[in-house]
């Protein structure tokens, strides 16, 4: 089983009406790898990320996580749509962190973190609280357990959001521009948590504008533009000597 890639996206197509957002995207991410997705806005990188946990359904291609097709079941040549309950079960194993944090504002930090473990996995509250406190400690926010999200800074909220995703013990973490909504001085604390996570061996796919992060912890880098992967490879190679003209012009603007 270990040689099955964690994410295998094969010729993915996604369109809204007549507008094709993803045109033939193929990406493979192996277990324990950190893959970074960069590209101009509107290039389809966030959409692709949302296809991975089936928040968006794909129109073409095959997408599997840990060897299991997302949202569909294949019997012979035929594809069958999964029931919402089955899709939820698949999503429970995939953590996602959003640009705008999306913490639940009517719950305290602790309640945010234990919500899914107790409701979805049926873990006992005491056990969930213990795990939550460990995770909060890991992101350096154990003293904020009883605070409401509105009383936290953006960087603190995003660290809580990461802890909330980790509370489900995911096998894969998706990050959708996790630092784009943050004040510059708060970016570092979130990136530090993500680096720690990468070192612990978590498989991560990160849509980001933080080129430095991609260079430092990325195992692979994908440059997307216009709904296709223009260039991919080792981040240090792609970033220092991009082969494609579009990659060169994008990097010259952001570096």
């Amino acid at each position: 089983m270990t040689d099955v890639p964690m994410v295998h996206a094969d010729h993915i197509v996604k369109s809204y009406g007549s507008h094709q957002v993803l045109k033939d995207v193929s990406v493979t991410v192996n277990r324990g790898e950190v893959a970074c997705l960069i590209g101009p806005s509107g290039s389809g990188k966030s959409t692709f990320l949302r296809c991975i946990n089936h928040l968006e359904s794909i129109n073409g291609g095959r997408l599997s996580v840990d060897g299991e097709l997302m949202g569909y079941r294949q019997r012979g040549e035929k594809l069958y749509e999964m029931s919402p309950a089955e899709v939820s079960r698949q999503r429970a194993d995939i953590g996602m962190v959003f640009q705008s944090f999306n913490l639940f504002p009517h719950m305290t930090v602790l309640e945010n973190i234990i919500e899914a473990p107790t409701q979805v996995k049926g873990i006992k509250k005491a056990a969930a609280v213990a795990t939550a406190m460990e995770l909060l400690d890991r992101v350096g926010l154990a003293h904020k357990a009883k605070a409401y999200p509105s009383h936290l800074s953006g960087g603190q909220q995003q660290r809580v959001a990461i802890a909330r995703a980790l509370a489900m013990s995911p096998k894969l973490m998706l990050f959708d521009e996790p630092t784009s909504a943050l004040d510059p001085e708060l970016v570092g604390e979130v990136l530090d948590v993500m680096k720690g996570l990468a070192r612990s061996g978590m498989t991560m796919i990160v849509v980001t504008h933080e080129i430095g992060f991609a260079r430092e912890v990325g195992d692979s880098l994908f440059f997307m533009d216009g709904g296709v992967i223009v260039e991919s490879g080792d981040p240090r190679e792609v970033l220092t000597s991009p082969k494609h003209e579009r990659t060169q012009s994008f990097l010259s603007k952001v570096l």
């Binding site: 946990n53 928040l55 919402p84 309950a85 939820s88 079960r89 999503r91 429970a92 194993d93 995939i94 953590g95 996602m96 959003f98 705008s100 999306n102 913490l103 639940f104 919500e115 899914a116 409701q119 979805v120 909330r164 995703a165 489900m168």
Partner: peptide, 19 residues
């Protein structure tokens, strides 16, 4: 985003609505 965050955590439509 609230609905998306809940669904991404594996919560069902019913749980997302009610909680």
């Amino acid at each position: 985003g609230q609905d998306e965050a809940a669904r991404a955590l594996g919560m069902s439509w019913r749980q997302t609505m009610l909680r």
